[in-house]
Amino acid sequence: MNASTHAVSDRLYRNRRIKNAIALGLSGLATLFGLFWLVWILWTTLRTGLAAMKPSLFTQMTPPPGSDGGLANALFGSAIMSVGAILIGTPIGVAAGTYLAEYARKHPIGEVIRFVNDILLSAPSIVLGLFVYTLVVRTSGHFSGYAGALSLALIVLPVVVRTTDEMLQLVPSTMREAALSLGVPQWKVTMQVLYRSALPGIVTGVLLALARISGETAPLLFTALNNQYWTHDLSQPMASVPVVIFQYAMSPYDSWHALAWAGAFVVTLFVLLLSLLSRAILLRNKASHD
């Protein structure tokens, strides 16, 4: 090899190294860019929200413009509709996930349901609100907490279906075979062996679904609507924290803005705690399996 080819290959090598360093540096910058927004958004929410926190938030009703109040009715409405949605969505979701994993694992129908379920999982939530509006609100003639809970249940459903399906598929088939060979009927195998082994995963799925619906606004706008007063009657329009945040944040009043930030703080904290909790359950489960 003579000197000039040496120089050329050196230069080539150096150029490739430089190009590589630039690309990797950019990838680090991209990550910083992502983290930057996360920190900024969380910081704003926590700081402004914490400043607006006060005990009356949990005891007083949503106020008319200009006067003082809290979010008690909205918090209660959110809680009761979320519980309702979990109570509707979880059993159906677990059953459908069981069907996919235990009865239609490789069947074409199972594939179709999985496909549709994945689309439902990412479908715009406002569309689900419109669906429930035409199905329930229009036929019953008025907005109601039931309609709100139902629209949230449609968001819970695909999350639970997916996690149940995945978790049951992870259960080793030797467990099924061992139980079946003892003469245990299949439904009992599913209920007492498979569910028990898949339980932490399914619980995680339900928690994630709860985290998702506790900040959901769009489907509630025209199903549960809103309510200025306390109500525990699900057949009435019901307040919820996200809808109140939306209404108050878009208003021109400072006192309403403060309440909206306090609501945002509560919702964000709740969602973060839920996602930490679900992560912890998964980790503990993993540790006990290893």
Partner: peptide, 13 residues
Amino acid sequence: LLAGIPSIIYGMW
């Protein structure tokens, strides 16, 4: 975690 933040928080922010 960014994915878990409710969209209404993004809107307010």
